[in-house]
Amino acid sequence: MPNNQTKAITQGAMMIALFLVLMALAYYVPIVSIVAFFVAPLPLAWYSATYNRNLSIGVTIVAIVASIFIGNIMILPFVLILATTGLVIGDCLRQQKSKLHLFLATGTTILLTFAIQYLVLVRFFNVDFIKDSLDLARKSYEKSMEYSASITGQELPREQMDQMFNLLEVTLPANITISMFFLAFLMIAVMLPILKRLKINVPKFAPFRDMRLPRAILWYYLIVLSINLFVQPEVGSTLYVIVLNLSMVLWVLLTLQGISFIHFVIDTFNYPPFLKVLSTIVAIPLYSFVLLLGIIDLGFNLRDWVKAKSEK
């Protein structure tokens, strides 16, 4: 037992040191920073997957505190997100949770950590970096429009620009949520193959063509659509903001379902693989059609019909 505990402490110290090195690279080295950012949670994920939760939490806390000494206080927000992400990923792997559970837990952790830090900055330090970023974007856009108008003689109506930025501000919750879960997906995609090589048992993700959303998503979409059609929330009201943000998240999910169905059709009929890339690119401007395809696939299970056609 003492030997095991000594080994756990020793490996914990090694993982903390490796985490700090990766954080320093992510924070200070411009070109390497992107790669270092995605692999920085790896040491803590490995440790959390190998040892029990109490030891893993202790090592994570020490890593967070020690990270302050490799830089200034500005590094702390990144450290909190990456350290807690590594802890959660490793904990899910140790408990042998499903791939869906791992993805949801990771995305929720990143989102909550980001939201808590944002609220602390706004509440106690009166720093709203999201608002400041939007103001900066608005000023930059205004200058670019003024420059464009001076060349072409055509000026974008002020109302149209205000509507665009107001819509962007209202839909920030949905945009942030989608971004955080996309970040979680990228981190999992990068780290799981490495953890597998390090002898950690990792779940396998099914091919994208087999992606199937819960059918309840369809009911949520119908409820939101009904509110938009029959209640018609007043612009700027709380209900309007909630419905608009839910709509955006559901649009993205159902569009992904539609793209997945297209990939399924391409594989089922053995069409050239490059059509997957082409169809995914084309799906962006034609998202309305792809979204409808996702709704039909989810509601009527088109895949069985396609599979039956391919067997004839």
Rank of each mutant, 00 (worst) to 15 (best):
I75S: 09
A66S: 10
V120D: 12
Y28G: 05
I227N: 14
L198F: 08
F230S: 10
F125Q: 12
D132F: 01
K131C: 10
S133V: 01
Y287D: 13
S148Y: 02
G299D: 00
Y141M: 07
K143A: 04
Y240S: 04
M161P: 15
A26R: 07
I130V: 09
I223D: 07
L239F: 07
T152S: 00
Y28I: 11
S247F: 00
T108H: 00
T85H: 08
I110E: 00
Y287K: 07
L104W: 10
R209D: 15
S133Y: 06
G294R: 01
F38G: 01
T60A: 11
T280P: 00
A26S: 06
F78V: 02
S98Y: 03
A13F: 05
R123W: 07
G258T: 10
N52F: 07
L102P: 11
P30H: 00
L42K: 04
R94E: 03
L195S: 01
S33D: 13
I188V: 11
I110L: 11
P207E: 15
I73D: 05
V282S: 06
K131Q: 09
G58Y: 13
A189M: 04
E159I: 05
Q257N: 01
R197I: 02
I89K: 01
E142L: 14
G58R: 03
L82D: 08
G294F: 07
R123S: 11
A13D: 09
F300G: 06
Y28N: 09
E311I: 01
D297E: 02
P233Q: 01
K196G: 04
N270Y: 09
V241P: 07
V249L: 03
L198Q: 13
L44M: 08
L112G: 12
A66Y: 07
F37Q: 13
S179Q: 04
L195N: 01
Y27I: 11
K309A: 06
L44E: 05
I16M: 13
R138S: 05
A149M: 07
F78W: 15
P272S: 04
V29A: 08
L298R: 13
S67A: 12
L254P: 01
Y287C: 14
V32K: 00
L55C: 14
D135W: 06
W251T: 11
I295F: 08
I73R: 05
F78D: 12
G107D: 14
Y271A: 12
I73L: 12
V79L: 12
I57K: 14
I81S: 02
F181S: 11
P193M: 06
Y221A: 13
K99A: 12
L93W: 09
G294P: 13
F78C: 15
F261Q: 10
I194T: 01
L22K: 02
I284S: 02
D297K: 13
V120A: 04
L275K: 08
F208L: 08
